[in-house]
Design a protein around this nucleic acid. Sequence first.
RNA 1: GGGGCGGUAGUUAAGUUGGUUAUAACGCCGGCCUGUCACGCCGGAGGUCGCGGGUUCGAGCCCCGUCCGCCCCGCCA
Length: 618
Amino acid sequence: MGALSPDASEASPITTPGSSILERGRTHDCGSLRGADAGREVVLYGWVHRRRDLGGRIFIDLRDRAGLTQVVFGPDINEDAHQRADALRSEHCIGVVGTVISRADNQNPNMETGEIEVEVSALEVFSTSETPPFSVADDDRLDTSENIRLKYRYLDLRRPSLQRNFMLRSKLATLTRQHLAEEGFLELETPFMVKYTPGGARNFLVPSRLNPGTFYALAESPQIFKQLFMVAGLDKYFQITRCFRDEDLRNDRQPEFTQIDVELSFATPARVFAPIERLIQRLWSEALGVELTLPLPRMTWAEAMGRYGSDKPDLRFGLELHDVTEIGKTSGFRVFAQADYVKGLCVPPEHATSLTRSQLDKLTAFVKKREAGGAKGLAWARVQEDGSWKAPFAKMMTPESMQAITTRMGGAPGAVLLFVADDFETTHTALCALRLLLRDQLGLLDGAPPWRFLWVTDFPLFERNEKGVWVSSHHPFTSPKPEHVQYLESDPGKVLANAYDLVLNGNEIGGGSIRIHSSEIQAKVFKALGLSPEEIEAKFSFLLEAFRYGPPPHGGIALGLDRVAMLAAGASSLRDVIAFPKTQRGHDLMTRCPGPADEAQLAELFIRHRPLPGEDEG
RNA sequence: GGGGCGGUAGUUAAGUUGGUUAUAACGCCGGCCUGUCACGCCGGAGGUCGCGGGUUCGAGCCCCGUCCGCCCCGCCA
C-alpha cells in the first residue's frame, strides 16, 4: 500500500565528499525492504519515528507513509554518522545511506520490514523538529485532545493511522473515476459560485465586487447543473465535487464535503442502481478486499420505517420493531388501547439478562428525552417460563392479549419486551433510538456482518415542515411515482416519490431520484408546494425554460465520498477522512479561520458590518 | 436556538469540606549504556489551574459572565 516510487534504482557509492544525500534520490521507501534485499546499499528518506540510544548503538525507526524501517548507527559502522545521530530526536527529517543487513535470529515480527535493518554509513539531517505537542509515534494509543490535533493538523496527518485513511480515500477516488469512466460516464465540472437558491440548505454567500450589493452562493450541490447536462444531451455525467452547506455541524457533517455526483438520461431507478452497485462492489473489492454480492438489498421506505423505525436502518443486527397496535386495542391496558401506535422490541433471553430493573429505568428515562423521541414512557415485560408476563402493567392486560403479543414478537421465556405507545412519529423515533442504544449497550454487533448495504426506495414526495406546510422531502424536481400523480392535489401526504437512498450500516451514504421532466407534473408539484407563479419564475425560471426544449427523462444520485471513506476506513468521525476539517463551530483551528475582513476589503465590496450582539451601534 | 460533557506542566489526567510548597504518568533536558524495538538505569527542569469579574482573611475548588473543544436535538440529504 502506498509505495513511494524510488528516485534512484540503486545507491551509487559516495565518491564526492559532502555530496548531498538528497541529490542521490531515494532507492526505497520505508515499507518495502525485505530479507531478500540484504547486502544492497540503499538511500532512505523519512522522519525519526522513535529513537533508542544504547550508547554504542543507536536505533532509529525511520518513517514515511509507506512504513517503518529500523536504521542502526554505530562507531564501528560509521564513526561520523554515529556521532551525528546522537542529536537525532523525534520528527527530525533525515536521509540515510546504508547497507541492508539481514537480522537473522533477531528479527522483529511486529514490523513489516522486521527481517532487516539498515546500517547507516551516511546521515543527513534535512531539518530538525521541535518537540511535538503530541507523539506521532504513539499513533495507536494517541492521547490528546481534538483541539490540539486540529491546531497541529500537519502533525496529526503524519500519524500512520490517518495516513492510511487518506491513502484509502485516494484509492476510492481513483477507482471511482476509473470505474465510472469505464461505464461510459463523462467527468464534467459545474460552478461553485452559483445563483442563490432559497429553501433547502442555507447557502454560503460570496459578495460580487463587480456587481455591488449582489451575491453569489456557494453551490450546496450541482443538482440543477447536472440536470441541465441531461437537457444538453451530455448523457451519463459524473463528478467528484465539493458541496457547501451553511448548516450546523455534526460528527458526520462538515460545511464543505465531497460528493460523487452522477446523473443519466432515460433513467429508471434500476438504471441508476446498477452502475452504482457495480462501483460499490469494485470499491469494496479493490480497496478493501471485500467481495459483495449484487444486487444490493432493497427495501421500501414504508417497510424500513415499519421494521426499524428509521429510513436508514442498520441491518447488521436484528431487534426489529413489532407492531402490536391491533392487539393493544383489546388488551385492556388503556395506554395501549388509546395509542395510535403500539410497537415493541423483543430483547432475546441471551441479552435480556443484563436488563436489570435499574437498567430498564434508565431505558425509560432515555426514550422520554426529547432527542430520543420524547415518548411518554416505556412499558417493559419479562416473559416467564410459562409464557406469562412479569410487568408492572401485567395485571391490567388480558391473558389472551399478552399471549398474542408474545407470539407476535417471538418472545421466548427470558426475553424482555419493550413497548412504546404513541403517535407514529414518536413511537418510531423512540424505538429507533432505543434499538441503536441497545445495539451498543448489549454488544449486538459482536460477530455481526461487517457490511450491510441497503437501498431504501419509495420515499414520500412531501413532508410537513414545522408550520404544517408541505415541503419536498428531497427537492422539488423529484418525480412522484406515476400511480400516485392522481393524489398530488387531493392527498399530497400519500404520494410516494421515485426517490432512493443508499444506506450502509445505518448511515446514509447517498441519495437521489428520478427527476420530473414533464412540465404538467412539475406544475402540479409546485402547486402542491404552494409556490406562486411569481416564486416559481424567480427561483426556477431558467430550469423550466430549459425544460421547454426537449428534456430527456433523467435521474441520478450523489454519494457522500467522505462518509463512504469514513466507513470504509473504520473511522468514527468525518474529521478523520477530511484533511483539513472544521470544528463543530466551523473554525479552522490551524489557520484561525474564519476571521474579520479589513475595512478596505469590505468597502470594495460595498459591505458594512452590522453591530454584533452586545456591540454598540457605530 | 437548546441539552449534556470537558478545559490544571509540552501531553493526558488526579486534586478531599475553600487552607499553607498544586500531584502523577508520559514527554523534554543532562549523564551512563553495543542489540534495542513503547529500550533500560541515575539525575534535573517544567504551572497565566481557558479568560474576566465576584464572594472570602484565603479560590484550581464556591458564584456570575464569557471563550474554546467534543457529543446530541433542532437544522441539514
